[in-house]
Nucleic acid binder design. Structure first.
Length: 231
DNA sequence: ATTATGATCGTCT
DNA sequence: GACGATCATAATG
């Protein structure tokens, strides 16, 4: 997709107003900002609605998941295990629930302050995993429902990774590596997919996406997996 | 290196 | 009252 090639202006609402499986891998490599801290996204997961038993929205609208049914490009924040505030970005048209869980990233701004606050953590671990990513970005319930498209405290900027899902689909035998998209500095983005982490239902769907060779990607139970045969 | 366990609380049954 | 889209620490091989 062309048109959003500025590294400064936020990805616009139409970027998110699409099927979540298209948006999720394209979000890899983007930068998410909150105050002085910025993180380059290296790992995400896609969650659907009524079609996805692993989704918070599977059983319909509740007070907690309401923003998942709302405006694409807004943030869905939930408390994980009573401890961690995790960050999602809502996708697909309003009225249809879907969101991308931002799981991991590499800190690219505000590093000094974060290092001082968590001196025992290696730099690559600061935003590794959804709990720690939420922590470095100061994600809390106050951000629930706010936009990442401008006009709010959070911004997502950068250059989308185009056509990532299409390339994943084109791989007939494995979900393995795909390459493409050389943006500036000749940095190739290699997208890999595998099962989502920490869920029981629909655990076989390879709806987790990450950038290969990225040390900030959380270690899940599986890496990339064989392509399940149809029928 | 891998595996087990406690923490902690909002949400839904 | 049970259950997590998790993480840090402790125990064990």
């Amino acid at each position: 997709m062309g048109g959003w090639l500025s590294t400064e202006s936020p990805y616009p609402v139409p970027f998110y107003d699409r099927p979540v499986l298209d948006v999720a891998p394209e979000l890899l490599g983007a930068t998410i900002w909150h105050g002085p801290v910025a993180v380059r996204i290296t790992e995400v997961e896609a969650y659907g609605g009524a079609d996805d038993p692993a989704s918070h929205a599977f059983r319909g609208l509740t007070p907690r998941n309401a923003v998942m049914f709302g405006q694409p490009g807004s943030v869905y924040v939930y408390l994980s295990y009573g401890v961690h505030w995790c960050l999602n970005i809502v996708c697909s048209p309003a009225g249809q629930a879907a969101a991308v869980l931002v799981r991991s990233g590499k800190v690219i701004a505000g590093l000094d302050g974060l290092r001082a606050r968590w001196p025992r953590l290696a730099e690559r671990d600061l935003a590794r995993g959804p709990g720690r990513l939420g922590r470095v970005l100061s994600v809390g319930p106050d951000l629930n429902g706010t936009p990442v498209t401008g006009g709010g405290p959070l911004r997502v900027t950068g250059v989308p990774t185009p056509g990532a899902q299409a390339a994943v689909d084109a791989q007939p035998t494995t979900y393995l590596a795909w390459q493409r998209s050389t943006h500036g500095r000749g940095s190739a983005r290699i997208v890999q997919t595998g099962p989502r982490v920490g869920i029981r239902l629909a655990a076989e769907r390879p709806w987790r996406f990450w950038l290969a060779e990225e040390p900030s990607v959380s270690r899940g139970p599986a890496r990339s997996v064989p392509h399940p045969h149809e029928g």
